[in-house]
Design a protein around this nucleic acid. Structure first.
Lengths: 335, 335
DNA sequence: AATAAAATTGCAAACGCTTACAAGCGTATC
DNA sequence: GATACGCTTGTAAGCGTTTGCAATTTTATT
């Protein structure tokens, strides 16, 4: 049985008859300790049920072995899969993860970063579709390294891990065009967000150009990242007489698909759909969703790995990582 | 612009010409400070860009305003929705959340709890289908209050928030029986877990009894909580000639549904399905899934609220909370 | 056996903040 | 005008570690 209030390093030192410093050394695996005293200390630790107090340790060492993760929403499959990758490699490197949901609200994002800074996290991983200027400033002020996971700042200054959205959307668009569905709608988040304006839209237009199609602004749609939004935007998409859609979110894509089918469209014969996140949603429906394939877990994992390097002041060759993507051809596209 | 290394309480005190104690008092909203000096201190804080160091604060006050959340997997919709509820009310009470994924591995659960204890969290919320004895011991040893969210220990000793699984499964089972599908399969996790053996199974049998049906062990199935497992177990379910299934996980239910439909069964006419978690998965498919309706977000929120009381040493009337559930009738059951 | 070099240990000062307890001060009371 | 009381503020002792430096003990060398 453990003692009520846990033992301190002082108790262990006393028990063995050595100084605090020595106990601290064996606890931290410092090599300069004689094997025999190490043994004794370890025994005492065992007997007293001593566990180092991480808070005290953090104060003294100025390292908390804790990182902060700022994300829009844990219940969003896309982000939660990234989070899982982050958490796994964080644990691998013995970091703990402080999680904050922001719903992409810049105010909450700012608060979150400030809060994490005052908690003295050793690093931060940030996810979100857009980096508000204020958030950017806050990040700069926090003296912890930051890496963006599945997100990017318009200036491309911050370390980040993503896929090549331009190419991915370009390929997806080209695919449906090739199938003869040339009136293709694009559903993204707000164009005020760099990722939409500077990446997805660019890829989309590029595919249009390559096919000699003219860009029609009426085929551009904006929707929140949820099923209801998909259902809702679907009506307008139908009115636009599009015969294909590239959607940036799986739930949205599902909403569109169900609406189309409920309104007499055959998917994929009359209407093709390609979604972007390839979450579990994409494979459980009938038809299942053709999707851009993103290595979500890896994006998280690589971000975290990069962060460990940053926290360690190691030099990093490439801070703007683009992981390879694929196109997972399934039931919402022909063949 | 902030100074490179952030200001300390000492700097603020110096600037204003008061003692540390006074600064500490205004930072902590202590009332016994003259309004005029409070003003001055606040100004100095602003000018210096001072942010309290939470680690130092934690060491001195023995409170970290951080709680730990131990969960099987963030990418599991059921748990992530609970987590969202937890996080929201945690923020409301100004707590931060330290998140750990365990994949329900008792070893990792034990490590997680120990780790959280050494990080001096003020409280812990634990999620998982079963509480290993060792985990229970570890929880007892950690001197932080713990509440179980969407989980329960076989002895019912720990504070917890759940729905009434017995009744919920009983109702679901009764529903399909009433529809004439009397050969109903039950898919759960391992019977070694209290929640399956002592709750779901009991509710299932109770409904059978009430309908005068005899219990057939061949209708009991065990599957992991994922789509592939559902697909896999579905074959056996079909062989058992069941004409309905009560599944404990939405992804599993979806796997079963798709398998059944692919093998000529009409859902719900030939085969009814009721799932248990009512996650987003349940509504995006066609047909959509009839499900036990669980107030998942609330389970998380209420757990966290209870934890704040526990951390505050407030007395709690009922530590074994059962939130109301519903039956969401959708496309996988008749009418 | 003496001395240098190496390996172990101990000392004590931080780390940045909270919090009794004590002290200072102005003012109401009689 | 002395006494007491209430409000503000300061003093200083922790909180449990880490860590640079010095001291001590071992071990190696000659």
């Amino acid at each position: 049985m453990q003692k009520k209030s846990s033992a301190t390093i002082y108790d262990v030192a006393n028990r063995v008859g050595v100084s605090l410093a020595t106990v601290s050394r064996v606890v931290n695996g410092n090599s300069n300790v004689r094997e025999s005293t190490k043994r004794k200390v370890l025994d005492a630790i065992e007997e007293l049920g001593y566990h180092p107090n991480a808070v005290a340790r953090g104060l003294a060492s100025k390292k908390t072995t804790t990182i902060g993760v700022v994300m829009p929403d844990v219940t969003d499959m896309y982000y939660s899969e990234l989070a899982r990758g982050i958490d796994d490699v964080a644990n691998m490197y013995h970091y703990d993860v402080l999680l904050t949901n922001t719903d992409e609200d810049p105010v909450r994002e700012t608060m979150a970063v400030n809060n994490l800074a005052s908690k003295q996290v050793d690093g931060i991983i940030f996810m979100g579709n857009e980096l508000d200027r204020e958030v950017l400033n806050t990040i700069a002020a926090a003296d912890a390294p930051v890496v963006l996971a599945g997100s990017l700042d318009s200036e491309g200054k911050l370390p980040s891990v993503n896929i090549d959205y331009v190419k991915a959307v370009e390929e997806a668009t080209a695919t449906v065009i090739k199938h003869g569905h040339q009136r293709v709608a694009l559903v993204t988040g707000p164009m005020s967000h760099a990722i939409n304006r500077m990446h997805r839209l660019v890829g989309y237009q590029s595919a249009l150009d390559a096919a000699g199609l003219i860009f029609d602004e009426d085929l551009l749609f904006t929707a929140h990242q949820d099923y209801a939004a998909g259902l809702q935007i679907a009506e307008k998409i139908m009115q636009s007489e599009a015969n294909a859609v590239i959607a940036y979110d799986d739930e949205v894509a599902l909403g569109i698909m169900n609406y189309m089918q409920d309104h007499g469209k055959r998917v994929p014969e009359d209407f093709e759909i390609i979604t972007s996140n390839d979450t579990k949603f994409a494979i459980v429906t009938r038809p299942d969703l053709t999707s851009i394939g993103q290595p979500k877990y890896d994006i998280g994992a690589v971000s975290m790995r990069m962060l460990t390097k940053l926290m360690n002041n190691e030099i990093i060759d490439d801070t703007q990582v683009k992981l390879p993507h694929t196109l997972e051809r399934r039931g919402t596209t022909i063949n």
